[in-house]
């Protein structure tokens, strides 16, 4: 969420929490979670093990009662039973009655969500097809692999076409094909206007799927990042060019905080990405033949390690 965008109002928020807290005995699992998730976005919920992510999700879903604080889901209190008709949930390590067949499982979940027999007849085959399990529709879950269980679990979370979908580690246990399938499904859910709340340790997956991510530690949001924007801070650029004289390199120092490299290759750091066009124009004006001008992408993993590392240092 950037400052350039409109501030979210309660009407366009899918989730809003204020100082949500959970204490188990003497252990503080969630210290004070304050979070806003806009409707229609794919929101990544990131943090190391023990950061309070699962407890936070359980509080949002009404499985765990908060010790303090408030949470609103789609404009209703998180404890509301009625709002759950509009929520889908894939738990981590999805477990279900393994004596049911895949189509029976979907029918059961559909019924629990209030789907009519007519809707079930239409949606059960459609959602089995969506997760590529049509061939296994009459097979009991007992014989399913972990990846197949993840996919049928995803289908049960979506069959009633919820407005808000919680996915807890949806791609764990999936092969690359399965991951791609899940990724496409998540995007298609955003396409129909649903909000997806994604908890995953697979940062590369989060990076290519999510719009916004929150970094959680000890049940508090310690940073947020809009993945459509570059992260704030220094920008690193690799330049490969000919005719780079020492004078020209010296001239780059007006934008660069550091420069190093040999005659044809430079690594340059600058304080803002706004300087990049100016640097390129300068090089061209100096008759430098530029073969490569590559701003270095700061991966989500690097951001994660940096943020969590900073926090660890400050403890």
């Amino acid at each position: 969420m950037t400052g350039e965008e409109a501030l979210p109002s309660p009407d366009n928020l899918a989730i809003e929490t204020r100082n949500l807290r959970k204490v188990f005995g003497s252990k503080v699992a969630v210290r004070g979670l304050s979070l806003q998730v806009r409707r229609g976005e794919i929101f990544g919920f990131l943090g190391p093990n023990g950061a309070g992510k699962s407890t936070s999700i359980k509080m949002l879903l009404g499985l765990v009662k908060p010790s303090a604080g408030e949470a609103t889901i789609l404009g209703c209190p998180s404890s509301s039973v009625e709002v759950r008709r509009r929520i889908g949930f894939l738990p981590e390590d999805f477990r279900f009655y393994d004596w049911l067949t895949a189509s029976e499982l979907l029918a059961l979940h559909g019924r629990l969500c209030g789907l009519t027999p007519g809707q079930l007849r239409e949606r059960v085959p459609a959602y089995l097809d969506l997760v590529d399990l049509t061939a296994h529709q009459n097979r009991r879950l007992r014989g399913f692999s972990k990846g197949m269980l993840q996919r049928i679990g995803l289908a049960q979370a979506l069959i009633h076409q919820p407005d808000l979908i919680f996915l807890d580690e949806p791609t764990s246990g999936l092969d690359p094909m399965g991951r791609r399938l899940v990724r496409d499904i998540i995007r298609s859910q955003r396409g129909r206007g649903a909000t997806v709340f994604l908890n995953s340790h697979l940062l590369s997956e989060v990076e290519i799927t999510c719009d916004t991510v929150a970094f959680i530690k000890q049940g508090e949001v310690i940073a947020m990042r809009d993945l459509h924007e570059s992260p704030p801070g220094e920008v690193h650029v690799t330049i490969r060019a000919r005719n780079l004289s020492p004078e020209i390199v010296e001239g780059l120092s007006q934008w660069a905080s550091s420069i190093n490299g040999d005659g044809e290759r430079l690594n340059l750091s600058t304080s803002s990405k706004k300087h990049l066009p100016q640097i390129l124009r300068y090089l061209v004006a100096c008759n430098v033949e530029v073969y490569e001008f590559t701003p270095k992408h700061v991966s989500l993993e690097e951001s994660f390690l940096e943020i969590m590392g900073d926090e660890r240092d400050s403890e």
Binding site: L63, V81, R85, F89, P91, H109, C113
Partner: peptide
């Protein structure tokens, strides 16, 4: 204990 109840208890029923 097995968390099987999570997928059911989050459905719209008290």
């Amino acid at each position: 204990a097995s968390s099987t109840i999570h997928a059911i208890a989050t459905k719209p029923q008290p």
